[in-house]
C-alpha cells in the first residue's frame, strides 16, 4: 500500500495524480512533482522579495510564493546594535527602513501552518537591495548550494534567490552593508555592461532550462564574450553560447 505524497490524492483506495509531472518514489511514499509551480519555501532558503505592505510590527513581502511572506520587526537588524530593544518609536519608523516597493534579500526562518513564510534579515548579508537588475526565472532552476551570494570574476555580484528571483549588482555596491541605506552613486558604464551581459546570460540559461549556479553563469558569461550584449538573446547565437557552456559544464563534472 503506497502512501500519498505531494501531487497525489486517494480516491476509493486508488492513488491518483493531481498534477502532471515526474513521479518520485521514496520507499512507499509516492510524489508527483510538476514541472512548473510557484515557489515552495523551505527553512534556510535565500529569497528575494518585494515589500507589499507595512503593518504593525511586520512587513508583508511578495516572494512569488503561494502567500505573501512575513518579515517581523523583531527579525531584522536595526541600526545601533543587535541587542537593542524594539520600542514603539521603531514601529512608527518602520516605513523609514523599508517601504512598499523596496526589494530585499532575506532568509526563510520558519513556515506557518498555512504555508506562509516567515523571513529574517539577521545577518549583514541580507537587507535592502539598491541598484541592480532583477531577473525572474522558474524556482526549479536554482540549484541549492552552500551559498547563494557570489562575487563573480567579471566584477559583478549575483544573488540566486531560491524563489527564482536573481539579483545582479555591481560588486563594490557591498551587500555587506546589509542595512537600510542604499548607495545611489551612478554606476559606471563598464559595470553596467557587465551586468547587462550577465542578465542576458541568465535569461538564455533559464529559457533553455539549464540550472543556474555561479559556475554555469560564469561559463555562459565567458562564452558570450565573443558576441555583443544585444545579440546574446538572439536564438542562433544563444544556441552557440549554450553549446559551449554545456560542454564546459560536462568537462568540469568529469
Amino acid at each position: 500500500m503506497a502512501s500519498t505524497g505531494h501531487g497525489t490524492y486517494t480516491d476509493d483506495e486508488h492513488l491518483v495524480a493531481s498534477v502532471a509531472g515526474v513521479v518520485e518514489r521514496v520507499n512507499r511514499l509516492i510524489c508527483v512533482r510538476p514541472l512548473n509551480t510557484r515557489y515552495n519555501g523551505e527553512i534556510g532558503d535565500v529569497v528575494i522579495g518585494r515589500i507589499t505592505e507595512v503593518q504593525q510590527k511586520r512587513w508583508k513581502v511578495d516572494t512569488e510564493s503561494r502567500l505573501d511572506s512575513v518579515l517581523l520587526l523583531s527579525s531584522v537588524n536595526l541600526p545601533g546594535g543587535e541587542l537593542r530593544r524594539r520600542s514603539a518609536e521603531d514601529e512608527l519608523a518602520m516605513r523609514d527602513y523599508l517601504k512598499e516597493g523596496d526589494l530585499i534579500s532575506a532568509e526563510v526562518q520558519s513556515i506557518f501552518s498555512d504555508g506562509a513564510l516567515s523571513l529574517h534579515t539577521r545577518s549583514l548579508r541580507y537587507g535592502k537591495l539598491g541598484q541592480g537588475v532583477l531577473v525572474k526565472v522558474s524556482p526549479s532552476l536554482i540549484l541549492r548550494s552552500k551559498t547563494h551570494f557570489h562575487h563573480l570574476a567579471s566584477g559583478a555580484s549575483i544573488i540566486l534567490g531560491n524563489n527564482g528571483l536573481v539579483w545582479l549588482q555591481p560588486a563594490n555596491s557591498a551587500v555587506e552593508a546589509g542595512g537600510f541605506v542604499t548607495d545611489l552613486e551612478p554606476v559606471p558604464i563598464s559595470e553596467r555592461e557587465v551586468i547587462s551581459r550577465l542578465r542576458n546570460c541568465v535569461i538564455i540559461l533559464a529559457h533553455h532550462r539549464l540550472a543556474l549556479s555561479d559556475t554555469s553563469v560564469t561559463y555562459c558569461y565567458e562564452a558570450s564574450m565573443a558576441h555583443e550584449i544585444k545579440d546574446i538573446t538572439k536564438p542562433e547565437i544563444s544556441e552557440e553560447i549554450l553549446l559551449e557552456t554545456r560542454q564546459r559544464l560536462l568537462e568540469q563534472r568529469g
Binding site: 490524492y9 493531481s18 498534477v19 502532471a20 509531472g21 514541472l35 512548473n36 509551480t37 510557484r38
Partner: peptide, 10 residues
Amino acid sequence: LVDAGIPLQD
C-alpha cells in the same frame, strides 16, 4: 491549470 501545476481532481 495543468501547465501551472495546480492540483486538480481530474
